[in-house]
Structure formats: C-alpha cells, structure tokens
C-alpha cells in the first residue's frame, strides 16, 4: 500500500473493528458489482432444480421458478 493516509485509515479501522473470523476463511465483497458486467449472477447458485438441501451452494440468492419459460 502506497498511500500513508489510507494506511492510517486502515489502521484506525482495524483497531475499532470487532475481531471476526471468516466463515470458510473467505468472504466475497462485491458480488453485485462483479456480476453486473458479467450478465448472470456470479453467486454460486443459479439453480433450476430440486429442493432445499442441507448442503447448499455458496451464496445462493435464487428465487422460485424454473429457467424454462
């Protein structure tokens, strides 16, 4: 990081922040913006089948309805 001001802001933020781990060691920050230029939703689930499962794909945001019109 080159900007000193930014470094200080980050430090201040880190100090004030309540420590929290990341689920799975990973947390996506910009799904919406990244998806906007890629047509579809980059969220892991764009499902067209099945039911609710105890094992769900990551970041599922899907609604009811099939892909088949």
């Amino acid at each position: 990081m080159k900007s000193k001001r930014l470094k200080m802001a980050l430090q201040k933020f880190s100090e004030a922040r309540i420590e929290g781990g990341l689920e799975d060691g990973f947390e996506v920050m910009n799904l919406d913006e990244a998806s906007s230029t890629r047509g579809g939703n980059l969220a892991g689930c764009t499902c067209n089948n099945g039911s609710n499962y105890t094992t769900k794909p990551p970041d599922c945001t899907c609604n009811n309805g099939s892909n088949y019109a």
């Binding site: 990973f26 920050m29 799904l31």
Partner: peptide
Amino acid sequence: DPNSEKQQRIIFSTRSGISALIE
C-alpha cells in the same frame, strides 16, 4: 492488520472481477 490474530488479505480475481477477504 499484521497485529491481529486473524491475518487477512484482500484477493482480487481479475478474470471474474471478484474481490474477497481471505485468511
């Protein structure tokens, strides 16, 4: 934050445009 127990970085995949926090 090198002083934190949780050592986290930001990773940015330019092939997908996704950015994420990563341990």
